[in-house]
Nucleic acid binder design. Structure first.
Lengths: 200, 200
DNA sequence: TCAAAATTTAACCATTTGGTTAAATCATTT
DNA sequence: AAATGATTTAACCAAATGGTTAAATTTTGA
């Protein structure tokens, strides 16, 4: 493993665990088992190192989904597939939601927000929505509010993971299992919301 | 306004804006227009000052709901009422969700989690659930997953507020309006999920 | 009224922080 | 092998940080 890779791995860990303000350059150096000066040699400053990590992590997490999405025709199927695929990522990187949320909530630094690939959300949640609506395949909901809801239902438990672990007394393994079970539950909710009432 | 009140007000602002690690005692002192030594005179340390703020804020936000809740009989009505009431609070304190989430995600400090009044959630989401389920008034969903979903749908947009403001180009006022509209949308989702299918 | 207690101030302190520098070591090429 | 460039180290630095102290001022109560 090259020095640069060691730094990135250590920086990922520390930034994710401690947040930007909580992270210490010395700790990153220690975990990478290198001299602190090396951090600045490879990535001029703390800010630039963070930027690197953020960009990389976001790139990994977001756009992996939209590829196969296109093979699904109906809006409901698309959303269900999104949940399924997204949970695969979330279960693998359960700390990512908090990392992203706390970054975009950082004061005076709106430029991180602009790095989020939100095109893919539009793609998922607006593409086949209107055609399915017109053809009566789905119920008339507000597509924006619906999108926020699906993302909220999906992501929220990962933001409250420490609390859930503590309060209902579960470990990482059990949490993972709960989230696995959650997939079908959420897909069911989506179907119940979107399936039009039968006016027979 | 007493010195103590001035400190608390300033500390609230700074901790909420900057987070625990980002907050500076000097900035709190400046905003309160007092000497930095006063902070330590009134609240021995940064940690204890934070604790005070956290406790107070949590107390304000959480338990205000459950009072009137009891007057609602059915589970669906209870949940809808919860959403309505909770949004009143959220719209008033839109920064609270991130404040709480980032606190409970702080490493090595699980004791903040224990201060969250989670009894009231059980009260809301489990109380009339089973009786309504048995009498066939609601569909069979997993009550835990459902509770997490309702909270997720409700809270999530407030966690992504900076991103929403930036990405869809709205200001605080417009955000507030969107959230106001969201109430009915969410209540509708809840009804669609919980109302049993008519097997006539 | 006057002493004791509470409050406020300014100067100070030790430690930690992100960052720098210049020398040393290692690798590469000629 | 010598020179060149990349990498690594140790020592260092200025600024910022949370916290302290002792004196000064104000408030209180007997």
């Amino acid at each position: 493993m090259s020095t640069e890779e060691k730094i990135i791995k250590a920086a990922e860990e520390v930034f994710i665990e401690q947040g930007y303000d909580g992270a210490r350059m010395q700790e990153i150096a220690d975990r990478a088992e290198i001299n602190k000066a090396m951090l600045h040699y490879y990535f001029r400053s703390k800010e630039m190192l963070f930027e690197k990590i953020f960009e990389e992590k976001v790139k990994v997490v977001f756009p992996t989904i939209s590829e196969q999405m296109k093979s699904y025709e109906g809006f409901t199927d698309k959303v269900c597939f999104f949940i399924e695929q997204y949970y695969e990522i979330l279960i693998k990187y359960p700390y990512m939601p908090f990392f992203v949320i706390s970054t975009i909530n950082r004061k005076d630094d709106k430029h991180f927000i602009k790095k989020l690939p939100f095109g893919f959300i539009k793609e998922i949640f607006f593409e086949s929505f209107f055609s399915d609506l017109q053809s009566g395949k789905i119920r008339e909901v507000n597509p924006f509010q619906f999108a926020v809801s699906v993302m909220g239902m999906s992501i929220f438990p990962f933001l409250t993971r420490p609390a859930m672990k503590e309060l209902i007394g579960i470990n990482d393994e059990q949490f993972q299992l709960l989230m696995q079970q959650r997939i079908d539950e959420l897909k069911n909710y989506v179907k119940l919301i979107l399936t039009p009432t039968n006016h027979a």
